[in-house]
Design a protein around this nucleic acid. Structure first.
Lengths: 141, 141
DNA sequence: CTCATTCTACGAAATGATTCGTAGTGACCT
DNA sequence: AGGTCACTACGAATCATTTCGTAGAATGAG
């Protein structure tokens, strides 16, 4: 059981993870280029390299050092990482209430009909899940 | 328009804002006590004081210095502040997609029937808003 | 008046994140 | 072989945040 959960990525680390999640394994050079595009300004090559090295220590990424230019890949899944960050954020900002967060996200933002329908579909799925896993509780309000 | 938007509060500042939002105006002493309760450990009195002084500079709080022990009050509204933080968070973590956030928040979390109903109600309200305020090709922004 | 208590103000240490410069190494081209 | 280029490793400067210690002023009790 030496598999400690990788720690919460910082902002810069998260940005690199986004690149890796989107593009798949990549060299420092490629990651740095993506990063420079994504922001408005050039990012120093060694800055990106350094962060990747720190991420390697934290086990947020793995690397293949077979070639001279190492290839990095994400070692954490997108959904899990986002869930982890979401938990922290909800705790700090909304006192732990995911409901408040959802209300705020939907309420103070323009949401298209498509998106609303998508959420409804999700709600239905969740309700089905809830009722099938919990047979004595069939409420038809 | 000299009303610059107060900056994004840090974690410690946000925690103090929570206290102020919940309890209303309070002295440093009272705030410090609430903080110490909220966490597991004692918080140094001067630590709380210092943060409040910084928050004052940033215009996150106001203070009444009439008495010897100053009374601080929140200068930013809860919903607005949460909305600001939410925007930043969604941008950094979900690439700007509030939808992904909502899906994640609802999907990977146990949500009660009550809460689901609450969200459905909110969805209905939003759809009504959308259809009444915005009929087809009538763009009155 | 004097002492103890409580307050504010401020400096500064400790920590974490981000950035970049420099050094060293290997590869490739001529 | 010699020179140039791209790469990794690493130290260190910078910046923001959080924390606390100390000093000095006001207050109230005896």
């Amino acid at each position: 059981m030496s598999q400690a959960t990788p720690p919460k990525p910082t902002d810069a680390e998260l940005e690199i993870l986004h690149v890796l999640w989107q593009h798949g394994p990549a060299t420092v050079r490629a990651i740095n280029d993506s990063l420079s595009q994504r922001r408005q300004a050039e990012v120093g090559y060694t800055t990106t390299l350094k962060i990747l090295q720190l991420m390697l220590e934290k086990a947020l990424v793995r690397r293949d050092a077979a070639d001279r230019s190492h290839v990095y890949r994400a070692a954490v899944r997108e959904q899990e990482t986002q869930g982890l960050l979401l938990d922290k954020f909800v705790a700090a900002t909304f006192g732990g209430s995911a409901m408040k967060l959802v209300m705020q996200a939907l309420g103070s933002r323009s949401t298209s009909a498509d998106e609303l329908a998508q959420i409804r579909r999700l709600l239905n799925d969740i309700e089905i899940q809830n009722s099938t896993s919990n047979s004595d509780d069939d409420d038809r309000a």
